[in-house]
Each structure stands twice: as C-alpha cells, then as structure tokens.
Design a binder for these strands. Structure first.
Lengths: 200, 200
DNA sequence: TCTTGGTTTGACCAACTGGTCAAAACAACG
DNA sequence: CGTTGTTTTGACCAGTTGGTCAAACCAAGA
C-alpha cells in the first residue's frame, strides 16, 4: 500500500538519481561521496538521505534501472528476422546507446571492473540465460548457412566490446582522433566489420 | 648520484607496486586506501610511506611503468612486414597481454573511465602520435590494395576494445561462458574476424 | 486560521582517511 | 664487539566520510 509520491518526491528523487549517475559513473562506488552527489543534485546531504536510505541505496537504484534497459537491445534480436540485418541492427542499437547514454555505460563498466560485487548473481542467471538463448539463434543461422560459421558468444562479446568502447574510453578515443567526431566513423566501421564477418 | 637500492628496498618497493596494482586496479585511485595496499604488501602503513612519498606516488609509478610497456605491441607493427600478418599479430599480442596482465589492463581502464586526469596529456601527444603513425602505414596498405579499405583508426580501436574486453570485463565474460575458458575461443574468433575484415 | 503531514536543515558523531614523527629495532661492516 | 645508516613501528593528527537527529519549515486542506 505505498502511496503515490508527491511532485516534490518525484523531482528530488530524479535529481538524486541523475546526480548519482554523474558521480558514480565517474568515480565508482567507493570513490564517490555523498557530498558530491548532494551538491550535484542541489540538495543538502541530510535532505538527500531523506529520499534514499544510504549511499548504497542510490547506487542500487541506479544499477537496477540500468539493467532493465541495458539488455533491451539484445532482447529485440529476432530469430524470425533476416539474420545479417538482425545482428547488424543489434550492433547499431548498442552503438547508439553508447552515444546517447555514456554515463550509464561507464556506471556499468565501473561495476564490472570492480568485480561486479552487486550484480554478479544477475549476470550468472538473467544475463547468461538471455545470451545463451540468443546465441542459440545465431548458431542456428550459422548451421543453416545463412551467416558465416562463427562462435556466437564471442560475436556478442565483440559487439559489446566495440560499441561500449566509445563510451567507456571516450577520452582516449577523442585524444587520438583529435577533432574528428568519433561516432560517424564508428558506425560506418561497424557496418563494414560485421557485414564482412557474417556474410557466409 | 642516486645510490643503488638495497635488496630490502628492491623487495619492498616491488611488493608495494604489486599490492598497489591489485588495489588500484580493483577500486580506482579514489576508491583505494593506503591501509588496503599496506596490508596486501605485508607492511605497516608508515613503513609503506617510507618507500613511497604518498598514495599518489605509488599510483604514478604504476601508471608510468604501465604506459611504457602498454604500447610496445603497437610499436612492433612493422610497415615492411606482411600487412595482414602484421595486423593480426598485433591483435594476438594484445589479447595475450590481456590474458597475462589483466590487472594492468584494469588499472588503465579505471584511469580512462575516470577521465584520465593523470595521463590525458600523454594520450594527446605520445599515444596520438604513435597511433597516427601506424594508421598511416595501414592506410598505405589499403591504398595499395594489400588489405581491404577500412578506417585505420577505428580498426585500431576495435582491436583495443575487443582484446581488453576479456581483461576488463572478465567477471561478465566468465559469468556468461560458465565453465568454458574464455581465451581459446577469443583467439580463434579474433583470427576469423580480422582475416575476413582485412582480406581485400 | 489552525492543523497535519511532508520537507529541509544545522549540529553533531564515530569511523576512516592520508599522512607525520620520534623512537625503537635492525643490518652490516670494520 | 660497537658504530653507523637503514628499516620498522606505535602513537598520533587533522580532515573527510557516511549517517543521525531533533527541531524548524512549509504546503495545503478543513
């Protein structure tokens, strides 16, 4: 019987989530401080703790929301669709997410880098199940000769790695490219790469 | 006129570097504590500070040593060698480094994720120069029709992304693969991927 | 207007942080 | 052995950290 939150609650909880995303994605859980988050949210620290029980509660809420949306692009990979178009569509969707939600990508990267203490279970159950399921689809395509024979798991890893690289290693990418915008070239390269890899 | 360090100095400084690598690679600079490092090194905190002036000094020493060796595989890419063999050799060398030095990879990833506050300059000068130089070689190969026409910079990014993924996202890779060892499949996939991409 | 329930804050706290220092312990060489 | 330079440590410190709490503030309906 939880009451519907007031407008103030909605506004402040949203501000805290956004501020937490900023700070956690930049410093990781241990490196982030409540004072930083409070300041970024425009609230006092006690006020922040009026809305979230603890530092960990903010982090948990962020991770939960992230995991929900993070795997959506893969869920959309459709076994009934055109194989090459489906896989390349997935890769492009992931690249778009890196471009539009780099903070989320870095929050996730931080969590994994630190050994995934808070989501290891989810990875071993939900994520593994989803990936195995999609890997089966890809393997069936390969067996039917519709795409080249490749290891489906490592194919998925390669998509994750390449697309997230542009969000997680943003400063390095920009340092190397200088003025050139990263994402145009990345999308074109992605197309070429998987087109050549997948064509049987 | 710096004196040669005693055996004790060599042993303890090495122990501190290794302990620092453990802790910094797991928690990032801000998330790591001197107490953790001291305990991992088997020394008391004041004793640790007898060998390194500060927390930052340990981190700096690690980053400096890392940058030296981190770029060696790319330096070895030889414009006079066989194009496809050179690029695929580089990719395999990087994958081997991920397997054998995962802590170093994660230390680097942490630094970049957090905005590379300590090495941004090096990236914009040394790294950019090296990459541009090798990109020119690759572009020349492409122009001469010896490999397929692809964007050299994004090709290099893709190698970094894919190979480092196995070190940086180790727990996720293992969660998804279950019992299967990651690196055998990765090396095989890497071969297929760049073989297909690069053949003109 | 008063009341009620949600909201905000200043003052505070114990634990932890990076770092200091003088004194003690030790190694090694003559 | 004694001396000299190196190594180690316990006690300590000031600043920061996550978190608490009672009191004040405020919005809005009766």
């Amino acid at each position: 019987m939880t009451k519907t939150p007031t407008r103030i609650q909605q506004r402040n909880r949203a501000a805290i989530m956004s501020a937490g995303l900023d700070v956690f994605s930049k410093f990781g859980f241990r490196g982030a401080t409540l004072d930083q988050i409070a300041e970024a949210a425009g609230l006092s620290k006690p006020n922040l703790l009026y809305y979230f029980a603890s530092k960990e509660a903010i982090h948990d809420a962020l991770l939960e929301r992230l995991l929900e949306t993070w795997l959506d692009p893969l869920k959309d990979l459709d076994g009934a669709g055109d194989p090459i178009a489906e896989i390349m569509g997935y890769a492009q969707r992931k690249l778009t997410m890196s471009r539009d939600y780099p903070r989320e990508s870095r929050l996730f990267a931080n969590e994994i880098l630190q050994g995934a203490p808070r989501i290891a279970e989810t990875l071993k159950t939900d994520l593994k199940q989803l990936v195995d399921e999609k890997a089966d689809i890809i393997k069936a395509w390969a067996d039917a000769g519709k795409i080249a024979k490749i290891d489906p798991h490592h194919l998925i890893f390669s998509i994750w790695a390449f697309t997230q690289h542009y969000a997680d290693f943003d400063v390095q990418v920009r340092a190397v490219l200088g003025d050139k915008p990263p994402y145009d070239g990345a999308a074109a390269f992605l197309d070429t790469l998987y087109e050549k890899l997948l064509r049987p």
